[in-house]
Structures are given as structure tokens and as C-alpha cells.
């Protein structure tokens, strides 16, 4: 069994693809998090990220399958699944081998795995556009914190920039300690150097209460369907929702 160890970046993945073609070998697993329990006979190869080699791979991908594919790869790599690099690696290899855009070849296992991986990230991003809850701080900045499964902060920040226009906001991924910050002019994503302290405005409690009351009033008790609610709104998302 051959395992490629890469750093957690897209260009790291491209470097692995380059290595695979150069050495004429196909790794069974590509990962940025090597496992400690390995079966006997496993060979772990650490792949250095090389910008020149990686660029050649990206050029080939764009040539055969367009810029969109690069965007799709970026999204897919934000997944929380351990297999993400292996799935993306297989997809890139298939694009280069077949020299065309394979995105719609849904009958193929590699394509479906990649499509599903990307879709899971996209779905969570879409859901959090709705589930993210902001609080108003003392100086008027809107603050939201959450713990998503996947690394979607960059994906949703742009949506909120359009929505909030002239209001500053901060979106804080507590799990990964990543922050998206908008000061009404520019949007930046980064890891805060110091832990955040947030001072919530005193009117905030009132609006939270009103929202809870609204939510209770909107329920039609005669039509209770817990299973359906759990399906749409998984329980692990509820701890940051004001109404639960």
C-alpha cells in the first residue's frame, strides 16, 4: 500500500498528482493527516509542495475541464471527511487521463464520489446561510459564532457581505478558530491572533426573547412531526440557534 502525505492545500494535492505521474505509481491513499495505525507493508511518502509542478497540473486541469473544475476542487477540499484528498486526487487523475471534462459522467464511481463530496460541503454552506445567528455588539458590529462540520466560513462570508452592505460583521468558526471579518469596506478571512472577547448589546436579550416567542407561536401543534424536523434541522446545529 502506498500513501502520499501532503500539506493541507490545493497545491499540495497538485504536487501529489505530479509525483504520481512522474513515478508512474498510483497511491492508495492521499492524505494530510497520516494515520498512526498502518497495515504491514505500507509505504508513506511525504510530498513536498512545489509551486512550479503544481501549476503545470492546474494548467492541464483547466485545459481539459475548465476553470470551474478548480473551483469545485477548492470547495471539495473544505470537507471534513478524511477521504477528501484521495477522492479529489482520483478525480484529477481521471480528468487528466481522459483529457476532458468528466463532471457529468454520473455513472462513474470516481465522479459520483467527487460530486457527493462537493455536494455535502455545498449543502452545509447553504444551510448555514439560514442557520447562522447574529448578535448585536455594543458598538453595532454583528457577531455570529458557529461550529460547522466543514470549513465553510469563506463560502458563506460573501453572501453576508451582500446582505449586510453597510453593517460590519464577524463570523467566528469556533471549531477551527477562523474568523471572517467585514468592516463595511473589505472582507477578510483569518485566524485571530488573540482570543475574542465580545460585548453584547443590552437590547439583544429582548430581540432573542421575541424571536423565541415568535417561533413558538408559529408552530401548529396538530401537525407535529419530529422526524421531519430532525431531517431538516439536525440536532447538532441547534446549540447556536436562539429558538432552541
Amino acid at each position: 500500500m502506498i500513501i502520499y502525505e501532503i500539506d493541507n492545500t490545493l497545491f499540495g494535492l497538485y504536487s501529489a498528482v505530479f509525483e504520481s505521474y512522474k513515478m508512474q505509481e498510483i497511491p492508495d491513499i492521499v492524505t494530510s493527516k497520516p494515520l498512526y495505525q498502518m497495515p504491514i507493508g505500507t509505504k508513506i511518502k511525504k510530498i513536498e509542495t512545489d509551486e512550479k509542478k503544481a501549476n503545470r497540473v492546474q494548467t492541464a486541469i483547466i485545459k481539459y475541464a475548465g476553470e470551474d473544475t478548480v473551483q469545485m476542487l477548492k470547495i471539495a477540499l473544505k470537507s471534513c471527511l478524511d477521504e477528501k484528498e484521495t477522492i479529489c486526487f482520483n478525480y484529477i487523475k481521471k480528468v487528466i487521463d481522459s483529457q476532458k471534462d468528466i463532471a457529468f459522467d454520473y455513472g462513474d464511481l470516481t465522479v459520483m464520489e467527487f460530486t457527493d463530496l462537493k455536494a455535502k460541503v455545498g449543502l452545509e454552506a447553504h444551510r448555514f446561510k439560514g442557520f447562522l445567528r447574529f448578535s448585536e455588539t455594543e458598538n453595532g458590529v454583528l457577531y455570529a459564532h458557529y461550529s460547522p462540520d466543514n470549513d465553510i466560513t469563506e463560502l458563506i462570508a460573501h453572501h453576508f457581505k451582500k446582505r449586510f452592505k453597510y453593517h460590519a460583521f464577524i463570523i467566528h468558526d469556533e471549531k477551527r478558530n477562523i474568523v471572517a471579518m467585514y468592516d463595511t469596506k473589505t472582507l477578510k478571512c483569518f485566524t485571530p491572533p488573540v482570543p475574542l472577547t465580545v460585548y453584547i448589546n443590552e437590547t439583544e436579550e429582548n430581540y432573542r426573547k421575541l424571536w423565541k416567542e415568535y417561533f413558538d407561536a408559529v408552530n401548529i401543534k396538530e401537525r407535529k412531526n419530529k422526524k421531519l424536523q430532525d431531517n431538516y434541522l439536525p440536532r447538532r446545529y441547534r446549540k447556536n440557534l436562539t429558538e432552541f
Partner: peptide, 14 residues
């Protein structure tokens, strides 16, 4: 596409 912000106990989107 519209965005669902929450779901009631009967499964309707809020």
C-alpha cells in the same frame, strides 16, 4: 433559491 432559517416542530420551514 430562498433560504430556510429554521424549522418548526411539524417540519415546515421558517
Amino acid at each position: 433559491g430562498g433560504i430556510c432559517h429554521s424549522f418548526t416542530a411539524d417540519g415546515r420551514c421558517v
